[in-house]
Amino acid sequence: MKRWKILLADDDPEDKEIIRDAMEMINAGNTINFADDGEHALQLLSGEYDLGNIPCLIVLDLNMPKLNGTETLRRLKLDDRFREVPVIIFSTSINSIEMEKCMQLGAHSYITKPITFNECLETAQAFHKFWKAY
Rank of each mutant, 00 (worst) to 15 (best):
I111Q: 12
I115R: 06
N95G: 06
I115Q: 14
D80S: 13
C102Q: 09
L121A: 05
C102E: 02
I97M: 03
D61R: 09
D80H: 14
R81Y: 00
L105F: 13
P86L: 07
E122A: 15
I88L: 14
M103P: 02
T70Y: 05
H108M: 04
R83E: 11
K101D: 12
E122F: 01
Y110L: 07
E100L: 08
D80R: 15
E100F: 06
T116D: 09
I58E: 01
L73N: 03
C120P: 00
Q125G: 10
G106I: 09
K66N: 13
F90S: 07
D80K: 15
N53C: 08
N95T: 07
M64W: 06
K77Q: 12
M103F: 00
N95F: 12
L76Y: 02
E119R: 01
E100C: 04
P65L: 04
K66Q: 07
S91T: 14
E100R: 15
P55Y: 07
P86A: 02
A107M: 10
I115L: 11
A126M: 15
K77T: 10
T72P: 01
L73S: 06
M64L: 01
C102F: 09
L105C: 04
L105G: 06
V87P: 07
L60S: 13
F117G: 01
L62C: 09
D61H: 12
R81A: 07
I115D: 11
F117S: 06
F90E: 00
M64R: 03
S96D: 10
C120D: 00
N95V: 12
D79Q: 13
D61E: 15
D79W: 10
M64V: 04
Q125H: 03
